[in-house]
Design a protein around this nucleic acid. Structure first.
Lengths: 343, 343
DNA sequence: TCGAAAACTGTAAGCGCTTCCACTCCAACC
DNA sequence: GGTTGGAGTGGAAGCGCTTACAGTTTTCGA
């Protein structure tokens, strides 16, 4: 039997009737709240099983004023790291009985409306990068929606978690300078995200520390196509840079490939670095020097922070910054051999 | 002002009071149902904005007996293709006003309970691969939960979508045989998933068609570590295979790398093929011959199929099979040069 | 000018759960 | 033997929304 007497899905009333108990007792058995006799417990369990009873969460949510669900708003889902982020998030959520509802804003005609709708079915929202603009986030705050930001500058009243970017970019750049590079180019648009802007800031800081002029970044999207295009352009440039500090691995890999195909020696003529440590970074040769972010931990932590906010166990905003890891491979010309930090 | 008069979030009553209208009219304005005067519309819109009103979805779900949400149950989130699958799914769902709730079963102590809970908050469920065992799926069917299966053999009463596997595996294997390979090994455990078992079946069929003995598969997990291990073992084997047909790119890439590091020539001494066409497959050299699955379309289609079921616009089960694409690169020794199908 | 239909609005009855409160037992204690 | 109190249970009031139905006003044709 798949349903209640009316043919529609079984409700708590059907279970109560079958167990010859009140719905109050059924609820107590099913939720494990309040005292119930052993007899009641078995009768309810059996009735529920026989009726294939599935409690309607909407009714419970309405009654307890809690959804036990988190909203996760991402700009996109392309690339490997969103998977890791999600994995970390889902792990925490799953272990703590929270559902995760994901929403992608890229390509969405009306993100504000979508997110408002989302807010109505979750206890709090996590926003990654520029999935949402600031006014929208502030609008949610006004409606008292708990919010956690990932890879975004802190906003009053919101928690945030991100991975450290500027210092590692500076460290990476300094390392290239130490090994004799004099004409570095940053590839990737700092405006495409807070984390990217921080990477450029670190890059710039390293140059400034040496009293070097800071070149304008190559403001291209963070895609393989852009990497190919930039590298191609450089092949015919008058004064070619001797190093590319790329905003992510996609750019770096495509550029690297393009340079090699044109018989430019990497790392001898040009060094190339990326960011993210995607799988392909380990498989190209020369191996791509890059920076690994703890995406899984980031997701895990964001879930935890949001839950603290939802339950009210913490009210002061927190801004966490997780450490990244410089991964030295051959593409930067300083090899893992003399590495300060290796993988 | 962020909330109703009581300090708690604003409800439809608060909006109605502020707009000096009944909640019925407010509902009609907000949902765009029924006739409403222009004056009412503006008054409601303004009141809602001033109160930062966020409709509680749980209440609506309860009233309309519909969640407007899909559940997506995945075994895992590691690897790049879940991202693509999700992207496709989310795209369809987003365009049709459906929320997506994801659940990962791998590592979950009590998947049945988790999924039962999920069933209470969605209109239907999509299950990928062996995220759930058959009894659990049948249990959901008994409770009249619409179900769509991805990468699974069809189940009575459920829709399914998957990508073609056996024929492309056969085609790939045949190609290797055509080019003189005589001792192929299938690497990856067919028991790890229906799609993998199909790949092995296609591999076997190609061999049988030539009257060749079908070797037992190397029953290892679909990971880089396994690829490395298998390759390492082969290095010292008495009779080394002259080709590895790997169940996925992870295995293939790791094996390829290991062989090259040991000075085994690929493709001359051993050919290697993978499955999935991950990004790294394009960046290794020799490029990895592999099979590309339309993951995004798979997700997109699954969402559509589920929705058809939920709305009842279709009641007969459908089993869709999407075409895959053989991607020939240098690792299989037959190069893109003489390719029947290229990328 | 009247009447019927159309346009608009409000009342109230749910949707399926949780939980406060009241009530009934019955064992344990003075 | 009466009192207390805890365990177990049921009645009933919501939670915030949608919508059938009824009521009121407006419009428009005859």
């Amino acid at each position: 039997m798949a349903s209640g007497p009316t043919g529609r899905p079984a409700t708590i009333y059907d279970v109560a009737a079958r167990a010859k108990l009140s719905i109050a007792t059924v609820s107590r058995v099913l939720q494990g709240t309040g005292p119930v006799s052993e007899k009641a417990r078995t009768r309810v369990d059996q009735a529920a099983r026989e009726l294939n009873y599935v409690p309607l969460r909407a009714a419970r949510s309405l009654a307890v004023q809690r959804h036990e669900a988190h909203g996760l708003v991402l700009p996109d889902l392309a690339g490997p790291f969103y998977g890791d982020l999600l994995m970390g998030y889902e792990r925490w959520a799953g272990e703590h009985g929270q559902s995760v509802i994901i929403t992608v804003t890229h390509g969405n005609p009306d993100p504000r409306r979508t997110v408002r709708d989302l807010a109505g079915r979750v206890d709090g929202i996590v926003v990654h990068g520029n999935a949402l603009d600031l006014p929208t986030i502030q609008g949610l705050r006004k409606a008292d929606v708990p919010i956690v930001l990932i890879a975004r500058p802190p906003v009053t009243g919101c928690d945030s978690v991100r991975s450290e970017s500027a210092a590692s970019a500076e460290q990476l750049t300094t390392r290239l300078l130490d090994h004799g590079r004099t004409n570095l180019l940053f590839v990737g648009d700092p405006a495409s995200g807070y984390d990217v802007s921080e990477r450029y800031a670190g890059f710039a800081k390293a140059l400034e520390a040496r009293g070097l002029r800071v070149p304008k970044p190559e403001q291209v999207p963070l895609t393989e196509a852009a990497g190919t295009a930039v590298a191609t352009k450089l092949l015919t440039a008058k004064k070619r840079p001797d190093g590319l500090v790329c905003a992510n691995d996609e750019i770096a890999l495509a550029a690297l490939q393009t340079l090699l195909a044109a018989d430019v020696a990497v790392p001898e003529d040009i060094v190339v670095t990326g960011w993210d440590d995607v799988m392909a970074a380990r498989y190209v040769s020369p191996g791509l020097t890059t920076v690994r972010q703890p995406m899984t931990e980031l997701g895990w932590l964001a879930a935890q922070r949001l839950h603290e906010r939802v339950t009210g166990e913490r009210t002061r905003a927190r801004n966490d910054v997780l450490a990244t890891q410089l991964v030295l491979r051959d593409s930067c010309g300083t090899g893992p051999g003399d590495a300060a930090v290796t993988e």
